[in-house]
Each structure stands twice: as C-alpha cells, then as structure tokens.
Simulated assay, not measured.
Amino acid sequence: MKIFYAVQATGNGHIARAMELLPYLQQYGTVDIFLSGNNSSLQTGLPVRYKSRGVSLYYTQSGSLDYLKIMKEFNARRVWKEAKDLPVEKYDCVLVDFESIAALSCRIKKIPCIGFGHQASFQSVKAPRPGTKNIAGEWILKYYAPSTVYTGLHFKQYDNFIFNPVIKQAILEAVPVEEGHITIYLPQYNDELLIKHFERITDVPFRLFSKTAIRPSSQKNITILPVNNATFNESVINCNGVITGAGFETPAEILYLGKKLLCIPIKGQYEQKCNAAALKDFDVTVIDDVKENFTATIINWLQHPNPKKLELTHSTETIVAKVMKQAEEIKG
C-alpha cells in the first residue's frame, strides 16, 4: 500500500504525533510525508517527500494570534497550484492531519481521504466546547481540511470515531518522578515576560523551553533551553508540574504521567478554548492570560492536588489498524 500522510507543521504537536505513528503506518506499506507550514521547532527525521509553506500561524509578543501577519503570508494562488500539483491520486491511502492543501487536492481530484487527528474529533458535537461557541472557530474546525471520513483523537472517547491520544513511546515507557522543577512551554509568549514572573518564586527551579534560544543558559532560578524533543521529554518525566498552552499532545502526555498541569489557551485560537473546556473535567487549572497576578497564580497552583490521570483505552497500533481499515472501506 502507498500511503500519503499530510502533516500540519504549524506547531510541534502534529509532527510529534507523525513521528510516533510512522513505524506503525510503515507496517502497511510505504509512507510519503507532505509537510505543510513552518512554525514547528522540532527536527523531524520524517520521510518528507513534499513540502509547502502552507498556511502558518504567527503570534504577537503578548500571546495572541497575529492575524495581520497570517493574512500577509497567505497566498491563495500558490495554495491552489500546490493543491493541483500534489499527486494524491497516485496513493492508496491519503491521511490528512488538519492540512488544508492536501484536503483541497483530494476535493479537486475527487480522491477519498481520511481526516485524522485531534481536530477531526470536532466533527462530533459531543466533543467539549467552551460556554460560548465561536462561529468562525467552529467553521475552521469543520471545514479547514474537509475529508471523506474521520478518525479523531481526544482526551476521552466522546464519540464512536474518537480515540485516546497517541502518546509517545518515551512517555509510555517512562517511570515518572518528581525532582522539584517546573517545566514551562509557552511559545506564544516573549521569554522576558515569563522570566519576570518566574524569577520572583526564588525557591522553585524552572525550566523554560524557548523557541528563540540557541543554547542552554541560566538566569537566577530559571534554566532556559532550546526546544528539543528528548530534552523536553526528560524534563516533563522528572518535573513536579508543567505550565503550557491548551494544545493537545503536551497536555495529554502530562495527564498520562499524572503531573500537575496549568494551561493558558492561546488567545484567538478557538480549538484551545475547546481543549480548555475538556481539561477542566480533569481538574486542570486553566487561566486566560499572563497578567500581573500571574506570580500569585503559580504559587497558588503549586499547592493544588494533581489532576485526574488520563486513561488509555486503545494502543497506537490499534488506532492505526482502524485507520487502515477505513482506508480499505473508502476505496470501495
């Protein structure tokens, strides 16, 4: 079987999941990756055969989406041409992980495809939403990368086509301990803004993973580290807690490890607000922004009990097997 796997690279989560899925997908045939976007900080090692600037996300220094820059970088003519040129018709199975160009290519060429990943779960009305729905956000989740069928991933199995997160093998095999430090990954914020708050809590060591850091450095009680998959895994396995956005992969891993978790949804990103609604069911602390009282919020959070642990009901191997069965069914 020839498998075309379109991976969104507007963040690290999609790529981290693709790296985990690849060995299982390769059991069914050859896999060619289409990597779309340029916001990821991870070195992939994936068999990338096709690449595009895609539709990338950019952030202001205060943590919200920079819509002006996103629109400035968007080129409709380029996107249309790339969609027409992608050879999706030469593959037996097309997987689309919230990637719009491959989805458009399949639509133009009338090729069936499988919408796979976290965003696919929002095709179900049973997936958690915030108290106030956002019409534009709902539209993006449903129509940004429309597919023939869907296999969704979420914190719980909210519907029959939704399965648990794909957890990295390094996390699955880990023996978590608490060595005292707090791990931070908030790429939507400027490092200096964060450091100002964390250095006030002098009795707690922090490890700040920075999208701009080239090499490790220290500032008072804060170790500043470049984004690196292995280093980050080691940090979260051995930390007392994690402060991060309300994405999907990282919070899922922290909940699986049973660690303390504080999440700050990226402003203007509706999916993260939906995730925040789901995370509250696990007793995760969720706040709206880094404000002047952020230092006090962290101190208070450090006293909270750990959230409910994430339970896995399906292995990665089983999830991939179900996706491959879907691929056979939609081929007709």
Rank of each mutant, 00 (worst) to 15 (best):
Y5V: 00
V7P: 01
A9L: 06
G13H: 02
G13F: 03
A16R: 06
M19C: 10
E20D: 11
L21C: 11
L21N: 03
L21F: 08
L22K: 13
Y24G: 06
Q27W: 07
D32A: 03
L35H: 01
G37S: 07
Y50K: 07
K51N: 12
S52E: 01
G54E: 04
V55D: 11
V55F: 15
S62G: 13
G63Y: 00
S64M: 06
L65K: 03
D66R: 01
Y67N: 10
L68K: 13
I70H: 04
I70L: 14
F74G: 01
A76F: 15
K81F: 08
K81A: 12
E82R: 01
D92H: 13
D92N: 14
V94N: 01
V96P: 04
D97Y: 07
E99I: 02
S100L: 10
I101V: 13
S105L: 03
C106T: 03
I114D: 00
I114H: 03
F116W: 13
H118I: 10
Q119S: 09
S121V: 10
S124H: 03
G131W: 09
G131N: 13
I135W: 13
A136F: 14
I140V: 15
K142A: 12
A145C: 05
A145W: 06
P146E: 10
T148H: 09
V149N: 05
Y150Q: 07
L153D: 02
H154C: 08
H154V: 08
Q157Y: 04
Y158F: 13
F161G: 03
N164L: 05
P165D: 04
A170N: 15
V177S: 15
V177E: 14
G180K: 09
I184M: 05
I184F: 04
Y189T: 09
L194A: 04
I195V: 15
F198M: 15
R200I: 11
T202D: 10
D203F: 09
D203Y: 12
V204F: 05
R215S: 14
P216G: 03
K220V: 03
N221G: 07
I224A: 02
P226E: 08
T231E: 15
F232C: 01
I237L: 07
F248S: 00
E253V: 09
P265F: 00
K267E: 13
G268F: 04
Q269S: 07
Y270M: 02
Y270D: 01
E271N: 05
A278M: 03
F282E: 01
D283F: 13
V284E: 00
D289G: 07
E292H: 12
F294I: 11
F294R: 06
T297E: 14
W301Y: 08
L302Y: 05
P305S: 08
P305C: 09
N306E: 13
N306S: 15
P307N: 07
P307A: 06
K309P: 03
E311K: 15
L312V: 09
E317D: 12
M324I: 12
A327M: 09
